[in-house]
Amino acid sequence: MILERPLHVAVLMGGWASEREVSLTSGAGVAEALESRGHQVTRIDMGRDVALRLHAARPDVVFNALHGVPGEDGSVQGMLDLMGLPYTHSGLATSVIAIDKQLTKQALVPHGIPMPGGRIVTREELFKGDPLPRPYVLKPVNEGSSVGVAIITDDSDVGSPIDPQARGPWQEFAQLLAEPFIKGRELTAAVLDGPDGPRALGVTELVVADGFYDYENKYTAGRTEHIFPARLPPEIAALCQHYAVKAHQVLGCRGTSRTDLRWDEEAGAEGLFVLETNTQPGMTPLSLVPEQAAGCGISYADLVEMLVAEALRVHGQRQAQGGRHGPADPA
């Protein structure tokens, strides 16, 4: 047991975001792991009464197993800050920035982290003409788990310009981020905080049976092969981990994060790009952070307790500095 004493942990899960089912699976796994270590667990499927339920439960700490809005965008983090409750994963300011793909670019690129270019477009602009030369990628500005991502190629059955009646994210989102398509290999690197600061756990390559690493391929067993450690040149593996740790630090992430990358091996190191950093990585049986942790000898239950321990450490540090009600992000 990593924690010194049994705790009462409230596990926030579910909610009403598009990633609700993934969050429920993550939360169930976390709750079972905590109970296996002797902790008291209160499971909370988040609704509009979440603050009242947390106040009634009076937990020692909250494990945030929510994905998407509002559990990943700073809304829940701000509520927990006001309630004075310690909680896992990143704080308010970090969450606001990292959930927004355009804000993430503005934060990371000046620090030497390469990311694809692109711009925000409205659906009306898309229907008038392509915002970038094909192939290009369209993705929602504020969603995770590759929800609503579309790759537009010359062979795409969406028309040119895009037909408003064609199936795609433009039917659901008024604004989208358009980025150049980066060909090559799909990679991801998890970062875990510890007593000596953040460290990368390694790099996984994701090989999809059909299509790309979208929401369905992420969470359907057998659709994606996870190769860990990724079979990469040592210098590329090291660069992936460097970018992941740097993004974690620049954004002010805490506990854990996962940075997704694409690598065009024909271009060498110049072909490596960061796509995004996830502040609330999944904790499901198919999730990448627990998988990489296991590859480093960290069990699922140990990983969960480490995240709780880090939440308590950061909260204690903030209290000592007199910042109980301030932003949750460490400097």
Rank of each mutant, 00 (worst) to 15 (best):
M115D: 08
L138K: 01
A174F: 13
G144R: 01
K139E: 03
K246I: 14
M115V: 05
M115E: 03
E125F: 02
D210G: 14
K183S: 15
A189W: 05
P135C: 12
P135A: 10
L187N: 01
Q241C: 04
D196A: 13
S160K: 15
V208K: 12
P131W: 10
Y136H: 05
G194H: 02
V191N: 01
P195W: 03
K183G: 14
A178T: 09
P229G: 03
K183E: 15
G194P: 03
G202N: 00
W170A: 04
L138A: 03
Y219G: 05
Q241R: 12
P229T: 07
G194T: 04
P135R: 08
A238H: 12
D193K: 06
P114M: 07
F173P: 03
D214H: 15
G211L: 00
V149R: 11
P164H: 01
P169T: 10
G144T: 07
V121H: 00
T153Q: 07
L206Y: 07
V207L: 13
A190M: 07
G222T: 06
Q171V: 05
G197H: 02
V141T: 12
R231F: 06
R223I: 10
K218G: 03
Q171S: 13
L132F: 05
L176N: 02
A190G: 13
E205F: 04
T122I: 10
Q175C: 09
G129R: 02
I162V: 11
A174G: 13
I151A: 05
Y243V: 13
G148E: 09
V137P: 00
D157V: 15
R223N: 13
N217E: 10
